[in-house]
Simulated assay, not measured.
Amino acid sequence: MSEDYRSIARERMKGHCRVCPACNGRACVGEVPGMGGLGTGSTFQNNYEALAQVTLNMTALHDVKVPDTGVTILGMNLKVPALAAPIGGVSFNMTAAVSEDDYIEAVLGGCEAAGTVGCSGDGVPPFIIDAAEKGLKSHPGIPFVKPWEGAELFEKIDRMMACKPLALGMDVDAAGLVSLREMGRPVAPMTVHELTRVIEHVHRQDCAFIVKGIMTPRDAEKAVAAGADAIVVSNHGGRILDHCPGTADVLPRIAAALRGRVPIIVDGGVRSGVDVLKMLALGADAVFIGRPVCVAAIGGGLDGVRIYFEGIRTQLAQAMLLTGVGTVGDINPELLFQG
């Protein structure tokens, strides 16, 4: 992304994010609300460090000339296996200089322009879901809802389904946001039976369902048993539970347990096309990218997001070229250096 966009974002995000050269969670420890990690910030930092410690086997002796970065996930044809993660609450997490409406328009529109897909988030202030609804009526996307207790859950699901989304997701790990209960809008963990009921409701409307917030093989199995069409290996960007492992550390075990039964998306510390390649080699089918997309959207609007994802695509193609893989489907653990 252009340094001009980063400079603009740095000015607009003062008090929320420093737009550090390395988005590793060290400068924003405990800044929640904001863009930091909860408590000691160790989970955010573990995400970044776990992925940074993965290294690649380089080779230029092969017959790959022009790598194909395209992929199909849940029927979506993407030019790059990287999507914008669901993030909402611009005014209290990111900046007062950009409205929720403008932020969602930048994310969904920028992703569409770059040949990928953006997600929308959910939250207590009604403007979050209002902006999601407005954006999804103008651009393809994937809305995520939280595991609300009571009637609110299905009311929000049906409201999002009316937008004809590409899929619908739930960040089940948002159950850890105890502040929502204190605000009179409780969220809670879900049993497999409860999750099955939700997924069946969405499936009856001919829509795929994504479960986000999986960090163990056991929970991955539960999500599949409930009928999930895809899972997201995620610890909510280190914003809900301190002292969790990085997603790159738990991903291989989860991939081994599922054995390709459903697509696996992963987030946490992905900052470049090389990081995308690493996550795919570790067992993912695609990645979500969060904080860097926020910076792109706030600093550059729709064009900032488009340029960011076009950069990710270029970086991924270069990384594929120098690891000898011609298609995303060819990416495998053999690309990883085993010291």
Rank of each mutant, 00 (worst) to 15 (best):
K79A: 11
G15E: 14
I254F: 11
M190Q: 06
K156I: 12
K14H: 09
A167Q: 06
M13D: 10
R271W: 12
F337E: 05
L56H: 10
M190L: 15
A50R: 13
T191I: 03
E112R: 08
P147R: 04
H201S: 01
E310I: 02
D130N: 09
R218C: 00
S91V: 12
A257I: 01
R6P: 02
R218W: 11
P165F: 12
A50M: 05
A27R: 03
L336D: 08
A208F: 11
P147L: 08
H193V: 02
Q53C: 06
L74H: 07
W148I: 03
Q338T: 14
T40Y: 03
L335V: 11
V211D: 10
V233N: 02
D285Y: 07
V250T: 12
R181T: 13
T40D: 15
A151P: 00
S7C: 07
G41D: 08
I87H: 12
D173Q: 04
A248M: 09
Q315K: 07
C119H: 02
G273W: 12
N235E: 02
K278E: 09
H139Q: 02
E133D: 11
G213E: 03
L180G: 01
A248W: 04
A220E: 05
P252K: 14
T247S: 13
I210F: 07
S234Q: 04
V19Q: 11
E112G: 11
G329Y: 08
V178P: 00
V107P: 01
G301T: 04
V211W: 00
L316P: 12
P125E: 12
V66K: 15
D171H: 03
V145L: 14
I298V: 15
V66C: 03
D122P: 01
I104P: 01
C28F: 04
R159Q: 14
I298W: 06
R204P: 00
V224R: 01
L136D: 04
L166G: 14
R181P: 02
T95C: 15
S234L: 06
T69H: 08
A132H: 09
Q53P: 00
Q318S: 10
D130F: 05
L78I: 02
E334F: 10
K222V: 00
D171Y: 10
D63L: 15
Q318I: 10
C294G: 04
G15Q: 11
W148G: 09
V178M: 07
A281H: 12
G324T: 04
N57W: 08
T196G: 14
C111K: 01
V232D: 09
A114W: 00
M190K: 10
